[in-house]
Write a protein that binds this DNA or RNA. Structure first.
Lengths: 346, 346
DNA sequence: TTGTAAGCGTTATCAT
DNA sequence: ATGATAACGCTTACAA
């Protein structure tokens, strides 16, 4: 049968058993780390080596419930997720799990595809950022009994573990800092308000102004959509006002990049022409000019919380309560929020 | 049996068939898009909905050879890979494939784990950056008949499709640019020379100097390991020379960040104090000061080449020849390589 | 310790 | 178009 040559049928546990002169049960036990007579062990190892056998995970996972796979639904491979994934991978690895990613680009249809895919793969757990409309989709996963952990955006009313950061609180602190330095004309370039991160960051902004009895000017509140472009046009909008702000808080990294681009094109510098504080901290902010003051998410802690929730649910399928963890962010003070020359209120 | 409630046994095609009052073969045909009598179709859809059935991919892939999965062995989620993955995902999606990532952190053991995992999952194809020692590992995958595409670093002697960029050529052009602007004391912070990208980028550097009859000073050649730290110490080393360079080429993004950090700490600016050209282009380089001249890899084209090689091999398992594609990079001229005041050779 | 055999949830091949 | 049934490659009792 040259058929074997052509089709390259992969060797199975049967082939290994044949060649080693033992039963398939023995080979299986060998593969799963059971006790094997020394001579047989050698035979089996020889056979596996010679045949180039590798266990078919699909077949294996049909009997044993666990696949060892944890599926991560990545919105997009941005800096935050890149960092999060880099932290998460070793954590899952150390508990014997394999993390696989599937990117959905925040498209609900792709999110659904991703979910369906992971469910069909019978992953042991799912990690996802809550996105608008995710609730219905995640509900199905909850019903099917697959443990899931969500982060970033809340999804109400589902039996899921959650890991968040205290967006509102840290933003309030950041705005307070701008106020202390002398700013009163403080604008915000906010993210999508349908997402709880977007809403919370804006709430934090408003809370700070209110607490300091600074009037909430609607023209200082510009809604972005997290994108670089929306940051760029927010800067444009704000700086075209008759009474432009002296400081702006941008609710994420990308929008800050957009703002910086606009400023560069208009030869404006920070903090002299506009003070700046950004959510998320990246290389750029450390190196840019005198530095961009930024809110750093505790990525390592976030990763740890996610991993521990996921793994504990896998190992103990009937933990009765939802767990929820809200972590604190740090503010990294840099030049962009420094005292500026001409920003004292007249 | 409350057993069902507790264990939450997932509904199978059998349960669906029972409830719909048809045979499992019919349900299977429905699932795979076959012709079904209208009344039955309705019954089946009702049953699937009511039961919350989802096909078990593992079971399915036991009979049909294809899994529809393409495995990507990611070294680390850095900016280049983030971008590459973002480009690749939709391409594979459009051909009906699912791209999954597994990160190996350039650790040969993890690389091996990743390979074994994907092979055991019977992925349809594998994408990997060549890493040193990858050859032995990838050899196994070639033997087992899984098509693979490698990029970035070459791995000689294996039947694999390859996608590269012309590292040497573009670096030569970049160095020529520095020479044209008046530099002769040009240093390099090179990457790992065991990797072909590292070696080629250095070769490009040397070729430019040689062609311009500039003596190759060994003290201007500092070996880094691609990391931020190695860039930082390279800057330190170079600028401590009695006769320091006036320009430096850094072989990747991270090392440039390290160099910039060192320069910032020592209040040096670019290009006045040190001209700079970097491999890889990122937000930072566009926004930094007067900008950092950078070599931009054609990520979109790289993704397209990878996807087309992978998909064509999956669809036609016996393409006789290895395909190889070498793409050209662009040089984005910015301020950091501008004519500097005090860099004319004395 | 080992062999035997019964599944696991699909797909595919038959008749019908 | 549908139903019955034999694989697919493995794990896991159970018997030996």
């Amino acid at each position: 049968m040259s058929d074997v040559d052509l089709k390259r049928r992969r060797p199975t546990i049967n082939d290994v058993a044949d060649r080693a002169g033992v039963a398939i049960g023995t080979v299986s036990r060998y593969l799963n780390g059971g006790e094997i007579r020394k001579s047989n062990r050698r035979q089996i190892e020889e056979a596996i080596e010679a045949l180039g056998f590798t266990r078919n995970a699909a077949a294996a996972s049909m009997k044993s419930a666990k696949t060892g796979i944890i599926g991560f639904l990545v919105p997009t491979f941005d800096e935050f997720h890149a960092s999060l994934l880099n932290h998460l991978a070793p954590l899952f690895r150390s508990t014997g799990h394999t993390m696989l990613t599937y990117s959905h680009e925040e498209d609900p249809r792709l999110f659904e595809d991703a979910m369906a895919f992971f469910v069909s793969q019978r992953v042991d757990a799912l990690i996802a950022a809550g996105i608008p409309k995710a609730d219905e989709l995640l509900a199905g996963c909850v019903e099917s009994g697959i443990p899931a952990v969500i982060y970033n955006n809340d999804v109400r009313g589902l039996f899921l573990d959650r890991v968040f950061v205290d967006n509102a609180k840290v933003v309030t602190r950041a705005i307070n800092h701008l106020i202390e330095v002398g700013h009163t004309k403080i604008a915000i370039c906010s993210g999508r308000e349908e997402e709880s991160t977007g809403a919370e960051r804006r709430e934090g902004y408003e809370a700070a102004l209110t607490a300091n009895e600074i009037f909430l000017r609607q023209d200082y509140i510009v809604s972005g959509d997290w994108s670089v472009e929306s940051g760029y046009s927010a800067a444009q909008t704000l700086m075209s006002l008759k009474d432009p702000p002296t400081a702006v808080f941008a609710a994420n990294y990308q929008m800050t990049v957009g703002i910086l681009e606009w400023m560069r094109e208009h030869s404006m510098r920070t903090p002299q022409d506009l003070a700046l504080v950004s959510f998320d901290d990246v290389d750029l902010f450390r190196l840019y000019d005198e530095g961009i003051t930024a809110i750093a998410q505790p990525v390592s802690q976030i990763a740890q919380a996610i991993a521990s929730y996921a793994v504990s649910r896998i190992e103990n399928t009937d933990l009765p309560n939802i767990r929820s963890r809200t972590l604190q962010c740090d503010i990294i003070l840099r030049g962009s929020s420094g005292r500026s020359v001409r920003n004292r209120e007249g």
